[in-house]
Every structure is written in C-alpha cells, then in structure tokens.
Design a binder for these strands. Structure first.
Lengths: 338, 338
DNA sequence: CATTGGCACTCTGCACAACCGAGTGCCAGT
DNA sequence: ACTGGCACTCGGTTGTGCAGAGTGCCAATG
C-alpha cells in the first residue's frame, strides 16, 4: 500500500517536526532531505499519507504534522533504537554506582533518566509480589506491643507496629521469629500466606491469639504494600512542551500526581523490551497528548518493576528508547550486586 | 506615618487583588469596601502608599498591585490567621487518621495540604538528628555479611549492609546487639557517637575489627541520613499561577526539584509559629515571585521537622496560614500516638 | 488641613483591516 | 509517474482607531 518512498517521506516529516516543532511543508522537506524528487511529488505523497491518517494539517494551507498513527508507524517500522554514546554509558555507571540504599538507587535513577531524556521520569520501586523475603524481625516495644520488620531481597524494608491482645513473652517472640524465618526466608511474597497458615497451632493455647495477630499484620502488610510505590522527577521539563502549553500541561501534571494512573500506565508495559504508548493509546485523558516510553527492569532475568519517561508525542523516540533501555539495564545490575 | 485609613486601604487592595488577580483602582475600591471616603481621597492615599513602596503600578494609568513589602505589612499587621471550619477540621482528622506508617503519614499530609490550600505542598520527614533511637537490629546475611537496621521513635527505618573483614559469630553478634541497644535506645542520634566509642574494647581481640566496622557503618548512616528527605505534591496547582506563567512556572518547578533548595527554605522557618517568606525574601531566585508559608511540627513540644506550602505571592495568606498551622498540629498528634 | 468633584491625560486592550508568505490542490505537460 | 505552474486559502503580523479604566493635579469646600 505504502510505497517505500512514502515511508521515507513520513520518516522525514517526523524527524523534521521533532526537531523544529513546526508543521513541515513539501518544499522544506525536499530541501533538507535529498529525496531526489520535486516538492510536487512530495505533495502527492503527503496527500496520500493524510488520506491514510498518518499525518494531518493543523490548518488548511499549513504544513503537516504526524498523527498518533503516524508516530506509531514511525516507531514500529522506521526507527531503530539509538544506542547511547560511550560517554553517556560511563556517566550512567558513575552516577548510579554511588547509591547507598534502595531509596537512593531509585532517586538517582529518576534524576538520571530525567536528565538524559530531558523529559519526565517515572521509576517504580521493586515490587513486593515478585520479590522474596530476606528476613522477618520482631522487636518488643512494650509488653503487648511488637514491631514487625520485613526485609526484601531488593533491600526494601517495611515495618508495622502490632498491638497484641495480651503481653507476649520474650521466649514466645524468639520462637515465633525463628519459626517464621525458617519458613519464609527466600520465598516469594505470594507464597507466604500458605506457608504460615498452620503456624499458630504449634504454639501454646495462651499464645495463639498473639501469634495470630502478628501473622495477620504480616499478611496485611504484604497486601497493602503490594500497592506499588514510585518516584517521579524532571517535571520542569514539561515546560518545554510547546507554546500553547497552559492548556496542555495542566492535565499532565494532574495525571502525574495520581500514583494510581502512573502505575496503571507502567503496568501496561510489556515485561521485556521497550514499550511505547503514543498519545491516545494512553487510557488516561490527561495524557492524550503525551507518549510514554517504559521498560521493565530487575536484578535477574525477570522484571521486578518498571521505569519510563513521559513526554510530548513529539519526542525523539529512538534516543528516548535507547536511554530508557540502557538505564534499566544498569539499574538491574546495581540491584543484582547489592 | 501611615494613618489608620491608609492601612485600611492597603488591606483592601491586597484583598481585592488576591481575589480578582487584577490591578485595583480607586473607584472599584470605594465601591467594594465602604471606606466612607471618595475615590479621590483614596487616590491620594494610594499615591502615599506607592511613595512608601507598599504598592506599585504595573503600567502608568493602571490600577495598583501590592509589592512584596506591601504583602509583608499585610501579613504582619493587617491579617489574622483564619481558623479552619469545623468541616475542614473533621476532614483533616479523617484523612490523616487512616495512615498506616510514616511514609503514609507524610504522603497523606502532602495531599491534604495541597488540596486544602490549592497550592504546592512540601513536607519534610521527621529529622533524624532530633529523633531518638528506638532499636538497632543486626541480622546475619552471610558469614561475613551483616545487615544493620536502625529504627527511630518517629517510625523511620534505615538499613545498611555491612561487609565485615572476617566471619562474625552468632554469639558475638548477639552480644553486640544487646550492648548496642542497652546503650543507645532512647538516646538522641547526636549523642550516639560518644556512647559507642569505647564499645569495641569490651570485645575479644579477634572480633574488634568486625565490631568497629559495624559501628562505623552505623555512624555513617547517622551522618548520611541526617540529610533530610521530603515529599512534595500539588504541583498542578502551579498552573493557577497566572496567564503569563510559562515564564514564571519554569524556575519554580526547577526549584521544587532541588531538594537542597527546599530544605534550606524550610530550614529558615522559625521553630514555632507560622513563618511567611514573601517574594524576594526567598534567597532562591526561582522563587522570587512566590511566597513560602511554613511551620514546624513534632510529636511533642519540640519540632522534629517542618512543612509548608509554596504559592504565588498573591495568595490568601490568612487562609493558607490557618491551613498550614492546623495540618501541622494534627500531624503532630498522629505522630505522638504511634 | 483633609476631603472632594472635576478635568485633562495616558495607557492598555480590542476590534478591524490590510498585507505577506508559506503551503496547498489541481491540472496540463513531459 | 513525475514535474512545473498557478490560483487559492489562511494564519500571523502590522497599523489604526476607539473605548474604558485609571491617574494626577487643581481649585473649591467644610
């Protein structure tokens, strides 16, 4: 359907538009890219591309700009993923290398990604559902008050204060701690409920209610904290959106504040490989004029969380995809080391 | 110098300007507020106020708008702090009451404050320097690898992995854990270094290097994490800044991303009572057209951290100050309970 | 002396018109 | 299938005129 040259024209339009932010006309196109044909020919091709919905005129007798569908074709068939320069790779490595704990890794990743792509960066904390338990700790705060601390293999720590029905002896607590750890350490979060279900039975009658209380708090924590957390940064890059941006920037900022929206957005990404969602492909209305480039990352082969950037549909897709992919890889390495 | 009526005129100007966002003229003033004098008189007063630098004309023959100095006078002498309505108080209580852990408290506070004031909210995590140690935990990850977990009275948890020079026995670890806790629990972070300095000497020669390593990591953590963390929200409220805001919003967004800047900003606030910094009173350039309203909060009498909002200098000061103060009080209560 | 009404003056903002230029669609010619 | 030419459209810019809001100053008044 689409001749080779027409695709070439589309690619040229996308590239020019991304660069100049202005509708691109037939004459300018032939001048910048030597396509070997005249403007008139290009006009015909453009008419055809518009017919098919890949490009569009903002106003009669202005240049053309790509539609979401046009960007989609560009991303799928016309653009590669631009690898980073050696200098950039070194910068990533240095910057991420200095992190001291998980929070720090995530914070640095956000900054890095925002800087590299000059767009808004979103990084999800490693998910609890896919991580495993490194350790469970119980601490006595008061006779009937216990603090429960949960440590994951990704370095995440969650704690809860548990109010027990009756005072809990040190020995019982030590006992519970030992048994709990022997059962769940190294296991996935999702497996924990089955593993602890008959644990109370092995305790004295008097202690069972306390044990059950602690365990149910543990399970609650698992469920509650399966709600993922994330961190965003680089919002000031939104100001580069365009001249008309008061109207545009508002809903985007609002969407970015809704963690739920962002999590859904990242969740839609494939587990492996870079995912690009363009304009109206995003379910959320506020993001209809933005694209989301996301990818999974993890310490091993499996993705434990996602990260990505949000930017105008008119973005440098190859560059952005390259940066996102590279950062995800390095973060994976860092996590694997710790 | 300034007659009672002139102050009244200034107050009227500020109130009108905050409401309408438009320069206010003498005629409109006499209509909205019944000052009992004619426009001409008000004009004379305005001329005097301008002479003294409290108000200013954006262009010749336009109305007047308050200067930073004018707002300052307004805040110091003309405006009270507007208490919240009963409904608002209830809303705060309900919303903050559901928090499960410290992160959640902070997150909810940010949302609440942003919603209440319709401005950008900034909440600092309770500072480590002023908190006390609730518990120190040591876990063995591998023979020569120890995880150090530090829990504060405000519910904050920090953890570090320590690589020891040689394998560390369980008994040594238990010993260290016990002695460490007996010394530092309930003490302030700033006191910890002196309290543990001669701890290694009480161990066997062979274990001292391990013990020292663990301790030095502990001290490092204290120092590193004294860098405060904070959370911000409500950035989409920036879009209500004004019509001219591309120019204005950019540097503000940038400033908000610099944690250092924000921390300094909050740090400048007095420990007790609501602090207001108006326009150029803010050291950071990007915030020269914003005002910062901040206040300390804490579980007891003493402030352990600060919170506040950032908004245009043209803001509803009484309302904002009321909201900020009320939220800080409730957060203090919540922290005290947990 | 403070207050007031009057008046001339100064701007801004807006509407309207004219014009320029970039870009298009179409058509006839190669 | 491509190209050159041509008439047409329309957004953006510039210029002019006008209305409205607001001011500063002055002379009059209690």
């Amino acid at each position: 359907m689409l001749s080779e040259r027409r695709l070439e024209v589309l690619r040229a339009i996308v590239q020019d538009y991304v660069g100049t932010e202005e509708p691109v006309g037939s004459k300018a196109l032939t001048e910048r890219h030597n396509l070997g044909v005249s403007p008139a020919t290009v006009r015909n091709d453009m008419a055809a591309l518009e017919e098919d919905g890949f490009i569009q005129q903002p106003h009669t007798s202005a240049g053309r700009i790509p539609t979401d569908k046009g960007y989609r074709l560009f991303v799928d068939r016309l653009a590669g993923v631009k690898p980073l320069s050696a200098a950039e790779r070194r910068a990533i490595h240095n910057f991420l290398g200095g992190a001291v704990d998980l929070d720090d890794v995530v914070a640095r990743t956000v900054r890095l990604l925002a800087q590299l792509t000059r767009q808004v960066a979103v990084v999800q904390y490693p998910s609890l559902t896919r991580s495993t338990v490194r350790h469970v700790e119980l601490l006595s705060l008061a006779p009937a008050r216990v603090m429960l601390v949960l440590i994951t293999d990704t370095g995440r720590v969650e704690q809860r204060v548990v109010d027990c029905p009756s005072p809990m002896g040190e020995t019982v607590m030590a006992d519970l701690r030992a048994r709990l750890n022997s059962r769940v350490v190294g296991r996935r979060f999702s497996d924990v409920p089955q593993l602890v279900v008959e644990l109370p039975e092995s305790f004295e009658q008097d202690d069972r209610s306390n044990v059950s209380t602690v365990l149910s708090t543990l399970l609650e924590t698992l469920v509650e904290e399966t709600e993922e957390r994330l961190m965003i940064g680089g919002t000031s890059n939104l100001t580069r959106f365009g001249h008309d941006f008061p109207m545009t920037i508002r809903p985007v900022l609002e969407a970015l504040e809704e963690q739920v929206v962002l999590l859904r957005l990242l969740g839609e990404a494939k587990d492996s490989g870079v995912t690009v969602r363009i304009g109206h492909e995003n379910a959320h209305e506020g993001l209809n004029s933005t694209s989301v480039v996301s990818v999974g990352y993890g310490s091993g082969d499996e993705a434990v969380a996602k990260l990505g950037v949000v930017g105008p549909t008119r973005m440098d897709y190859p560059g952005t995809m390259g940066a996102v992919r590279a950062v995800a890889r390095y973060v994976g390495q860092i996590l694997a080391e710790s």
